[in-house]
Design a protein around this nucleic acid. Structure first.
Length: 681
DNA sequence: TTATTCCGG
């Protein structure tokens, strides 16, 4: 194993954080070798590791109905397999779908493959993601998000347009991929029973979970692909660290003192606040370093950062200056930065868990899984050998869980269950998941849908109602879909469409912590005493009035990209409303109508002010508090509905709307029964 | 007394 003796950064480490060297490698840690731009494309394709296996792969894939394909990034599997299939005439009677967990991946892969085939994107090779369909009747190779294929399945559960479905990045185990596993398996079986053209399913993954995948898909064969790899040196701390932030700080400057300045550092941390704080400390210290130390540029990276600032991670630091990137797990998969030589892994991540009993989502810092730790390490040296410092001991590493718990076991299942029923799955309670969610989680999701009127029970069977069928046609959380469907009754569908769109994208409000006072001052003019929904609606209207002026957005701390998305979502929802013959109208100044509609649609998320000034969630009888980001934070309304409950430092309601107790009672008289106090109005 | 990991339709 090559080891560069020129900079052994572990040696001079401060007491308490001494690393030792370890020659342990992730089995098959592979990295892409960039082909030279001048090399003709067909030559480039033949240089990929997978090319050696082409003939063998094709003879296998021709026969098999299911295959698990294991190979790391750089093997070329995602771009080549679809082309090999096409070139060999496999599945020519229909389309080949290749799914990706992320939009950008689907789009850029389609672009790359179209280029390799020398065709215009959207002809032979196309892609489909939300808001964008770049395909035509000629399209045979279709890249798409997994969520998009799932949407299509609602209209065509047997996926009859497709002869091959390739589920890529399966190891990420997104909810959508996990549901698709069951959908394609069912489609495969049903097509066989009905004598239709068979459906081939190819699951592609980066190591891990191999047995689970194979077992699930009828003991399907596993094909291994070699890739290119650069060695990554792993260091562990000698002793457990009580303060991973302090350890990260020390490690950054340890490397900074010893490594050539062109070697960039990527630090994995848990969240915005932590990142901004460490960034400040690093910059302060960097100012007072001895002369033999070069300068340092510190770049934060997290999802809520405005796009312009996110781009800074791709800019090379000036010559002689080191780039240090402080990132959340966004840098594990979504953002790939070249030139990283060092990774520092705090071993921690912020993640959401869901408690079906309380209906509570808990957002908490926790340890990463082994798979995640390897993923982070792999970000060092994508072009060359790299080094990864783990701020924990090897013993601690050994005790990490092997795999991140699949999202399907950590989330609210209401929309998943609704989708399964819309797909015509008979027995949703016993759906064939690869990793089953807890029966409690499934039961609580079905109960939620029952309260919304989306499903009803008949002889122990759970059936989709006509309302539920309509709800499933919206790409929304069931309660939002329900609220839209109720809105014509309150003559405020235009307002509700805007509000639901605003709530279903990432926050349109930009809150840089450093400019807190300014933000508060600017927000004041939009604050509505009726709550956050009406406040957001007001901001959206103001945004439209200035036609999305960027300058206006900056002055008002509004995230213009997310605002743009709101418009896209709204027009998509509007189209669905047209198809459902829903009356679209505005209630004008009568905003009470909007709140009444929200109360009706969101009655499950209601809370009541208690005599001691705290709030009680009426559904679960949890004690909850108003989130400080709410415009109602200082107010004490008697009744509110809220969008979500999130447990961070306390159990907070986020995005609140002031409502009357009567409205809640009207919405669900039997549900509330005596839950409510005598009304005041 | 006061705070939002990350995707996706």
């Amino acid at each position: 194993m090559p080891y560069d003796p020129d900079h052994p950064p572990a040696k001079k480490f401060k007491p308490g954080s001494v690393f030792f060297r370890l020659d342990k490698q992730k089995p098959g840690m592979l990295l892409p070798g960039k082909a030279k731009a001048t090399t003709p494309i067909d030559v480039q394709r033949k240089q990929l590791p997978i090319y050696q296996a082409r003939a063998q792969l094709l003879s296998q894939l021709r026969q098999l109905h299911n295959a698990i394909l294991i190979g790391e990034t750089g093997s070329g599997k995602t771009t080549q397999i679809p082309q090999y299939l096409y070139e060999a005439g496999i599945g020519r009677q229909g389309l080949v779908a290749i799914t990706q967990p992320r939009r950008v991946a689907a789009i850029s892969l389609a672009g790359r493959v179209a280029e390799e085939k020398g065709t215009q994107l959207g002809k032979l090779v196309g892609y489909t993601v939300r808001f964008e369909d770049v395909t035509s009747p000629e399209t045979k190779l279709k890249f798409m998000t997994d969520g998009m294929l799932l949407r299509e399945a609602i209209g065509d559960p047997l996926l009859l347009r497709y002869t091959v479905v390739v589920l890529d990045e399966a190891h990420e185990r997104t909810v959508h991929t996990d549901v698709l596993f069951g959908v394609v398996k069912t489609a495969q079986r049903r097509r066989k029973e009905l004598g239709k053209i068979p459906l081939k399913v190819i699951v592609m993954s980066a190591t891990m979970d191999v047995d689970l995948f194979s077992e699930y898909f009828n003991k399907s064969p596993v094909l291994y692909l070699e890739g290119r790899q650069h060695p990554i040196q792993i260091y562990y701390t000698k002793q457990a660290q009580s303060d991973y932030l302090q350890a990260a700080l020390v490690t950054v400057f340890q490397i900074h003192q010893e490594a050539p300045p062109s070697h960039d550092i990527l630090v994995f941390m848990t969240g915005q606040e932590e990142i901004e704080a460490l960034a400040r400390t690093c910059r302060d210290i960097a100012k007072h370093l001895p002369d033999n130390c070069g300068p340092m540029v510190v770049v934060p990276l997290y999802a809520s950062l405005p796009p312009m600032q996110q781009l800074r991670v791709f800019q090379a630091a000036p010559k002689g200056c080191r780039k240090v990137i402080l990132a959340t797990n966004i840098a594990e998969t979504s953002v790939t930065i070249s030139g990283i030589k060092y990774v520092i892994d705090t071993g921690m991540v912020k993640a959401k868990r869901f408690n079906p009993d309380s209906g509570l989502e808990v957002l908490a810092v926790q340890r990463v899984s082994k798979a995640q730790a390897w993923q982070r390490a792999g970000r060092a040296g994508r072009e060359d050998s790299g080094i990864c410092y783990r701020l924990y001991t090897e013993q601690e590493f050994d005790h990490l869980i092997p795999m991140t718990v699949p999202e399907i076991q950590r989330c609210n299942l209401a929309s998943v269950m609704l989708q399964l029923m819309a797909l015509g799955i008979q027995d949703v309670m016993n759906f064939d998941f690869m990793s089953k969610p807890s029966p409690d989680a499934i039961r609580s999701a079905v109960e939620h849908l029952e309260l919304l009127g989306a499903v009803e029970r008949n002889n122990g069977q759970v059936l989709l109602t006509a309302l539920g069928k309509k709800m499933s046609s919206f790409p929304l959380e069931p309660r939002y879909a329900k609220t839209i469907l109720l809105s014509p009754n309150y003559a405020c569908s235009e307002e509700i469409l805007s509000i639901v769109s605003l709530l279903s994208v990432d926050s349109v409000l930009y809150n840089p912590p450093a400019r807190r006072e300014e933000v508060l001052a600017v927000r004041k003019k939009f604050m509505s005493s009726e709550g956050d929904h009406m406040t957001l609606l007001g901001i959206y209207r103001a945004f439209k009035k200035v036609s999305g002026n960027k300058e206006w957005c900056r002055e008002n701390f509004v995230n213009s990209r997310n605002m743009g998305l709101v418009k896209d979502v709204q027009s998509q929802l509007r189209e669905i409303c047209f198809k459902l013959n829903l009356k679209l109208e505005s209630c004008g100044a009568d905003t009470g109508k909007v709140r009444q509609c929200l109360a009706h649609g969101m009655f499950i998320n209601a809370a009541e002010l208690q005599p001691d000034g705290s709030y009680l969630a009426l559904d679960t009888h949890q004690s909850v508090a108003i989130h400080p980001s709410s415009v109602l934070f200082q107010a004490k309304p008697a009744y509110v509905v809220f969008n979500e409950l999130l447990h961070t430092s306390r159990c907070y309601m986020r995005d609140l709307c002031l409502v009357d107790a009567d409205w809640l009672l009207d919405a669900a008289p039997e549900y509330f029964g005596r839950k409510l106090r005598p009304t005041k109005s």
